[in-house]
Amino acid sequence: MALSQEMNTHSTPVSTNGAIIVDPPRLWRWFGSAIVALIAAWIVYQVFTNAGFEWSVVGEYLFHPSVLGGVLMTLELTVLVMAIGSAIGIAIAVMRMSGDPLLAFVAHSFVWFFRGTPVLIQLVFWYNLATLFPDISVGIPFGGPKFYEISSTIAISSFTAAMLGLGLNEAAYMAEIIRAGLLSVDPGQAEAAKALGYRPAQTFFKIVLPQAMKAIIPPTGNQLIGTLKFTSLASTVALYELMHSVEVIYARTFETVPMLIVAALWYLFLVSILSVLQYFVERHFSRGLRQAVGGH
């Protein structure tokens, strides 16, 4: 009898408040696991047996010079877009938090416009800027003398259009990320810096921004990864980045699927590298935060 009671006690767990906790039936979990395993097995089978993947073509073009050139262009564009987006984003975030109604309105309008319109439209717009402004000039406006003038078709190349379209769009998102990070810093830090005689610029760059970085870094890492993938849209303006390089090849060879696999493998590789770097950067700032908290 005692043995039976002990077995019942172990088979039916009881919580601390006396309520009986009943384990959910495992049948559905087993069924779900079997379905997932079946789907995974089917995918693996297709990858290794479906001739349509044409893995020999993938291997032939994976390190093709034109594809590698597209990879380098993608990396170059990603770095420049993030640099432009971060620099303009800081300025827009500061303008929104400045307290000046005009600056705040301009900054809010910038974020509203560039976040509200698709990136593809922005790219095509910059690429066709010559339709509105055949020439780009520097001088006194409203009919005044011009000091420098250049044709828009020369000034706005495929690379320039992609850099402007992606960079300004990125700036709108970075502005909100930076603003949120700045708002996470205790206002007393700026007041203390002012009491110590710091100028506003010194307070921002030496006191406020470094503390805000712990909140800015994680979403910025995600934006960097997103920007890397968004560079594929630059193929619409004929920029020879990774996606356009494989498009040129499969337009000639009609081997669409394997060339798309080549692009996907490169994107996966680059995103994996950036994800690892993001992990170490976040860990570095988290360690600094823990040390600061421990010190206090």
Rank of each mutant, 00 (worst) to 15 (best):
G69I: 01
M163D: 01
A34T: 10
D23C: 01
S151A: 13
G32D: 08
S66I: 08
W55T: 03
L233W: 11
P24R: 15
L268C: 10
P13I: 04
V248H: 03
R283Y: 06
I21T: 06
A93R: 09
I178D: 02
Y148H: 12
L129W: 08
R252F: 02
G89S: 12
I140Q: 10
G70K: 07
F280G: 03
A292L: 06
G167R: 07
E247Q: 15
W28R: 14
M95T: 12
N128G: 00
V14S: 13
A180Y: 10
K229E: 13
I225R: 04
L274D: 03
L123Y: 09
Q211Y: 06
I156E: 00
I217L: 15
V124S: 10
K214R: 15
L164R: 06
A195D: 00
I140C: 05
E54T: 00
N169Y: 11
G226L: 10
G143M: 06
V47L: 15
I156W: 00
V81Y: 05
A104Y: 05
V57L: 00
V138M: 14
E76G: 10
K229G: 13
L166G: 04
T117M: 09
S33Q: 04
L164P: 12
V79H: 03
A234W: 08
T203D: 02
M97A: 09
Y61A: 03
H296P: 02
K194C: 04
E255K: 13
I207S: 08
T78A: 14
E191A: 13
F254R: 13
V185I: 15
S152I: 01
S272N: 13
M243P: 04
P187N: 07
R179L: 10
S33M: 09
V67E: 00
S15W: 06
I121D: 09
A264G: 14
S245D: 06
T220E: 03
A40Q: 02
S137M: 04
W266V: 11
K229A: 09
I136M: 15
H244W: 10
F53A: 02
Q211P: 07
F53Q: 01
P258N: 07
S184L: 05
L123D: 11
E282L: 13
M97H: 03
L129P: 07
L129D: 01
M73G: 00
L268F: 14
L274A: 15
A104N: 13
A87C: 11
H284K: 07
V106A: 14
N128T: 03
M97D: 03
R199L: 14
T9K: 13
E149R: 15
V57G: 01
L62P: 01
R252M: 02
V271D: 07
A130N: 11
N128R: 11
V119M: 10
W30R: 10
T231N: 08
R96D: 14
S4K: 12
T74C: 10
F110W: 12
V185F: 11
P25R: 11
L132A: 12
D135I: 06
T256D: 02
G89M: 15
M82W: 05
A264F: 13
G295I: 05
V124A: 12
A234S: 15
A264Y: 08
